[in-house]
Nucleic acid binder design. Structure first.
Length: 271
DNA sequence: CCGGACGCCTGTCGGC
DNA sequence: TGCCGACAGGCGTCCG
């Protein structure tokens, strides 16, 4: 489910409820997520105060005095802060019991999400060391994309979804960014000019920022912390719109699979 | 190193 | 109505 805007929305939703709180204990009803949720994690977080929350790529980091809890929502994960006694649903796998009678509850039907423990700093964890720059940061721009794309023959859509190049751009926002930049998703990454990469970097920043402002994109089941959907779905110009007229030229939006992921584009506006 | 394919899971939807 | 395959917002791993 979640790309960067949805994870950021999630962070903003839960942060006010978690700041200054202490974790009493971790309660697991299902430990078989992407990786097993080990009892070692339970032991590490029990009794610890939450000192800070942050996002890195699509990971949420809960910083505790002795390290960080690293949380990933996978394809179908979501988080709510609820009264501790709220009965769990069938896919409510993990609760972090808090010291104010509430709990942070992870729901994840497909179980592609994960929980890790990192002795500080979290950025040294193997899952985080290879990550590229945050897209909404000065370190990310067209020059970066242009340099990293040299010699690459893979489609540009695959290229910008590679977290070693830039983090947080998932399947929806990759299609949307390329559409707004006028670049065909299948064009080899190494055959795009610096000028066009400038446009692409600008598009990525703008699309992600706009999506965050709308609380993310709800296609099926994504909900914000308060249970409301994200409203960026109505701003999508190509994703999920196969056969509909291109908002710019009226040509029908096309769909095809690129790198095992469905991709949407306008064959007339994107070259 | 790079690029492509696969697998992990469950739920939903469209076609027959 | 029921079944069955395809597909879904991610990503680590393996293979050539």
């Amino acid at each position: 489910m979640p790309e960067l805007p949805e994870v950021e929305t999630c962070l903003r939703g839960i942060a006010p409820h978690l700041r200054g709180r202490r974790i009493l204990r971790l309660e697991a009803r299902e430990r078989r997520l992407r990786w097993p949720v080990t009892p070692q994690i339970d032991a590490a977080v029990a009794g610890q105060p939450i000192e800070a929350l942050q996002r890195r790529a699509k990971y949420l980091l809960l910083d505790l005095p002795s390290g960080s809890l690293i949380l990933h929502l996978g394809m179908s994960g979501s988080l709510r802060v609820l009264p501790a006694e709220t009965p769990p649903g069938p896919h409510d796998h993990i609760d972090l019991m808090l010291d104010d009678g509430k709990c942070l509850r992870l729901r994840d039907p497909r179980r592609f999400g994960s929980l890790h423990w990192a002795a500080s700093p979290a950025t040294d964890h193997p899952l985080l060391t290879q990550l590229g720059p945050e897209p909404v940061s000065p370190g990310f721009d067209g020059g970066h994309l242009h340099r990293r794309s040299a010699g690459r023959r893979a489609p540009v859509k695959t290229f910008i979804m590679d977290s070693r190049i830039v983090v947080g751009v998932g399947n929806i926002y990759a299609s949307e960014s390329l559409y707004r930049a006028g670049i065909h998703p299948q064009r080899p990454a190494g055959r795009i000019s610096r000028t066009r990469y400038d446009r692409l970097a600008t598009s990525i920043k703008a699309v992600l920022a706009a999506a965050i402002a709308e609380g993310g994109t709800t296609l099926r089941d994504f909900v914000q912390e308060d249970g409301n959907p994200g409203y960026f779905a109505r701003e999508l110009r190509v994703y999920g719109r196969e056969g509909e007229p291109c908002p710019s030229c009226g040509h029908p939006i096309r769909q095809r699979r690129i790198g095992q992921r469905s991709s949407f584009y306008c064959a007339r506006c994107q070259r």
